[in-house]
Computed example of a mutant assay.
Amino acid sequence: MTHLQSLKKIGITGQNGFVGQHLYNTLGLFPEEFERVDFQKDFFESPEALDHFVKQCDVIVHLAAMNRHESQEVIYQTNVDLAQRLAASLERTSSKAHVLFSSSSQEERDNLYGKSKKEGREILAKWAKENGGKFTGMIIPNVFGPFGQPNYNSFIATFCHKLTHGETPTIDNDGEVKLIYINELVKTIIDEIRSGETKEELVIPHTSVNKVSEVLEKLNDYKAKYFEGGEIPELKTAFDYNLFNTFRCYFDIKNHYPVKFTQHTDPRGAFVEVIRLGIGGQCSFSTTVPGITRGNHYHTRKIERFAVIKGKALIQLRKIGTDKVLDFYLDGNEPAYVDMPIWYTHNIKNIGEEELFTIFWINEAYDPADADTYFEEV
Score class of each variant (00 low, 15 high):
residue 183 N to T: 09
residue 240 D to K: 06
residue 230 G to T: 03
residue 233 P to V: 10
residue 223 K to Y: 05
residue 229 G to L: 06
residue 246 T to P: 00
residue 245 N to E: 00
residue 229 G to P: 03
residue 241 Y to D: 02
residue 248 R to N: 01
residue 222 Y to P: 09
residue 175 G to I: 15
residue 199 K to L: 11
residue 206 H to I: 03
residue 198 T to K: 13
residue 190 I to T: 14
residue 215 V to H: 03
residue 225 K to N: 08
residue 212 V to E: 07
residue 204 I to R: 02
residue 176 E to C: 07
residue 188 T to F: 14
residue 211 K to T: 06
residue 232 I to R: 05
residue 200 E to W: 05
residue 249 C to W: 00
residue 233 P to Y: 09
residue 204 I to Y: 06
residue 181 Y to H: 13
residue 192 E to Y: 14
residue 215 V to S: 01
residue 191 D to W: 12
residue 194 R to G: 03
residue 239 F to H: 12
residue 211 K to V: 05
residue 187 K to C: 10
residue 231 E to F: 04
residue 241 Y to L: 06
residue 218 K to E: 11
residue 229 G to E: 11
residue 241 Y to V: 04
residue 178 K to H: 10
residue 201 E to V: 10
residue 235 L to E: 08
residue 244 F to T: 06
residue 206 H to W: 09
residue 216 L to V: 06
residue 192 E to H: 15
residue 225 K to H: 08
residue 218 K to C: 07
residue 178 K to T: 09
residue 231 E to Q: 12
residue 196 G to W: 07
residue 234 E to H: 14
residue 233 P to W: 09
residue 246 T to K: 00
residue 236 K to D: 07
residue 210 N to D: 00
residue 214 E to T: 11
residue 198 T to A: 15
residue 180 I to C: 05
residue 189 I to S: 10
residue 185 L to V: 15
residue 200 E to S: 08
residue 180 I to M: 11
residue 200 E to C: 01
residue 226 Y to P: 01
residue 191 D to S: 15
residue 225 K to F: 01
residue 197 E to R: 11
residue 204 I to F: 02
residue 219 L to G: 04
residue 218 K to N: 12
residue 193 I to G: 04
residue 206 H to K: 07
residue 183 N to R: 11
residue 190 I to W: 14
residue 209 V to Q: 14
residue 227 F to R: 05
residue 188 T to K: 15
residue 230 G to I: 03
residue 232 I to P: 03
residue 202 L to W: 13
residue 188 T to E: 15
residue 193 I to M: 13
residue 201 E to L: 10
residue 190 I to Y: 15
residue 212 V to H: 03
residue 207 T to Q: 13
residue 189 I to W: 10
residue 199 K to C: 11
residue 220 N to V: 02
residue 202 L to F: 15
residue 230 G to C: 00
residue 244 F to K: 04
